[in-house]
Design a protein around this nucleic acid. Structure first.
Length: 568
RNA sequence: UGGGGCGUGGUGCAACGGCAGCACAUCAGCCUUUGGAGCUGAGUAUCUUGGUUCGAAUCCAGGCGCCCCAGCCA
């Protein structure tokens, strides 16, 4: 970092200070996902902080999977997380696993036992919980106790070092049933911070591990693994979310007692995003019950979902940078995220014409059978994107919404007698329409064109108030378009038990009779385009040559919708 | 009657003892071959009380409010 520059956030400032004071003379961070689910937008903030902090100071990042609980973790997620993180643009120097250090960690535990700082406890989970003490009344955890009560010491707390060593060895060797004993740190049962009341270090779990198989039947807890792994890897700054603040005294206690490399934990507040589900448990439920099509359903704010929807890593990075790092409790509006997605896509997306809700427009005075190739700009934001040819003919499709039999106030599009522009083609004037005698629906609109306005400009300089997009009927490629809306109707879908009550029943609208211009016929999955006047779209995995499928990434801002809404 | 964290427009983030600023959102206008983009302008904020100071969002003291913590989860 440029020393004259003000640090971008309080973490950079803290790291810079550590370098300056000599607390550390290099920077190494770690990225510690637990392989028990797919990455979502909530993880991204932490990922980027870990990565960018290392990069800022010329340091390195280690991707370390926190796999200390074999009952929840799977290899499937290891691969997926690596893939997602790489897609996001994060770079690491190596991949490690908490389980790589199980042997060494066990040795460290023995050291603590020998120092009289850890003991084997035979109490049941219920007994341990009951003896931990209580929080005062008024907290959500306690309805009955008036005041905080100190914990009471386990009857096994003062076992001899020899006995503890023996018992720990036998725990490791599988001599005891699951859940029957634990190794606890011997700290202070009346500590005001509950985390310090003799926390559990090892528990017996007779579950095979995705990497170590059946070698172990005792597994370390987070508290007894994370900080130690940090230290073993020479991590200087262990950046984590605020919920771990109260664990910091323990993090430091272990390393101090061990006399090992003193990694520093720094916390920041996690990202809360409105309308985004971050709970892994609930996400999993949505997937398993088929509410969404999978972990990559475009309505999900999983990385895979966002990617499939058409969001780019750059947009996500900009968004996270804009959100900033603090310790405030905050809720970021999904609208802010959308604005970054639009901004990114506006710069990079080629423009195309696509009609989602087709209505036939017949240009009565256009010669039958004539076809003209119109020049269309690919991206007004990027001259280097060039132009393309779009075929035009007597019958074109326009959006149903671009024609009104009787226009509301301020409506400038097509209605009887009004002249508008067909983008890149001609000025046309509406002469009439026909309707289905049965339903009364408008089936076809008629107009005449002014041959002198080829390209869209009138030689006499007359102006029109509206330009609409179109697709030549004869050349149109049929496409499926999936319109996504917010999956939830509530801002915080993570609270509450009944997910179904907060689901938006209209979060997906599938349109099968859409028409897109010929250049989109062979769109490849992942291709991003702007459908003019409609929104940003991304070709879906389900696309086949000649049969494209598009996901709407995000709509364009729609001023007309606002006007219309105000009119009621 | 525990411990910890946090309070700046509607939302998020700046300002680190010296004119409270930026983005998103909102409103008004300009421009426009996307009612997109862009441009211009407007409104709205320092939780509260007291203190220190020429001067406080910033420092000090008290109060208030919100969030987190009693897994052998991470």
């Amino acid at each position: 970092m440029d020393t004259n520059e003000k640090p971008a956030n309080f973490i950079f400032a803290a790291v810079a200070e550590d370098l300056k004071t000599g607390r550390f003379n290099y920077v190494r961070t770690r990225l510690p996902p637990e392989p028990n689910g797919y990455l979502h937008i909530g993880h991204v903030k932490a990922f980027l902080i870990d990565y960018l902090t290392a990069r800022e100071f010329g340091g390195e990042l280690i991707l370390r999977f926190d796999d200390t609980n074999p009952t929840k973790e799977e290899t499937e997620f290891v691969d997926a997380i690596e893939d997602d993180a790489r897609w996001l643009g994060i770079q690491w120097v190596k991949v490690t696993f908490a389980s790589d250090y199980f042997d060494r960690l066990y040795e460290w535990a023995i050291r603590l036992v020998k120092k009289g700082l850890a003991y084997v406890d035979d109490q049941s989970p219920e007994e341990m919980s009951a003896s931990r003490g209580t929080l005062p009344r008024g907290t959500k955890w306690s309805e009955t106790e008036a005041a905080i009560k100190p914990g009471v010491a386990s009857p096994y707390r003062d076992r001899s070092v020899e006995e503890n060593l023996d018992l720990l060895e036998r725990m490791k060797n599988g001599e005891f049933p699951e859940g029957s004993r634990v190794l606890r740190a011997k700290i202070d049962m009346s500590h005001p911070n509950l985390v310090m009341r003799d926390p559990v270090m090892y528990r017996i779990l007779r579950v095979p591990h995705h990497r170590t198989g059946t070698k172990w039947c005792i597994y370390p807890t987070y508290d007894w693994s994370h900080g130690q792994n940090d230290s073993m890897e020479g991590i200087t700054h262990s950046l984590c979310s605020q919920e771990y603040i109260i664990h910091r005294p323990l993090y430091e206690w272990f390393l101090r007692q061990l006399g090992e490399f003193p990694s520093r934990q720094i916390e920041f507040s996690r990202l809360n995003l409105t309308y985004a589900m971050m709970s892994k448990r609930k996400l999993r439920k949505l997937v398993e019950t088929g509410v969404v099509s999978g972990w990559d359903d475009p309505r999900l704010t999983t990385l895979r979902g966002l990617r499939r929807r058409g969001v780019t890593p750059e947009a996500i990075q900009s968004f996270i940078a804009a959100v900033g790092e603090t310790n405030n409790d905050s809720w970021v509006d999904m609208g802010l995220f959308d604005s970054f997605v639009r901004d990114d896509l506006n710069q990079r997306s080629p423009r195309r014409m696509a009609v989602l809700h087709p209505l036939k427009l017949v240009i009565d005075n256009y010669p039958d059978g004539q076809v003209e190739e119109m020049d269309a700009v690919n991206n007004p934001e990027d001259a280097s994107a060039g132009t393309r040819k779009v075929p035009f003919s007597k019958v074109v499709y326009i959006e149903q919404d671009d024609f009104r039999e009787t226009p509301p106030p301020k409506y400038h599009r097509l209605y009887p007698g009004n002249e508008i522009r067909l983008r890149y083609a001609y000025l046309v004037k509406c002469t009439g329409f026909s309707r289905d005698p049965g339903t009364g629906a408008v089936t076809e609109v008629h107009c005449t064109y002014d041959p002198a306005t080829r390209g869209g400009d009138a030689p006499d300089g007359r102006k029109v108030k509206s330009t609409i997009h179109w697709v030549s009927a004869e050349h149109a490629v049929q496409a499926e378009v999936r319109l996504y809306a917010q999956l939830f109707t509530v801002e915080n879908p993570d609270v509450g038990d009944d997910i179904s009550a907060s689901l938006n029943p209209n979060s997906l609208e599938t349109l099968t009779g859409c028409f897109v211009e010929p250049s989109l016929a062979d769109a490849k999955p992942g291709d991003k385009v702007q459908f003019e006047r409609t929104g940003y779209f991304c070709a879906d995995l389900d696309s086949a040559p000649g049969k494209p499928v598009f996901n709407r990434t995000v709509t364009l801002k729609d001023t007309w919708a606002k006007i219309e809404q105000k009119q009621g």
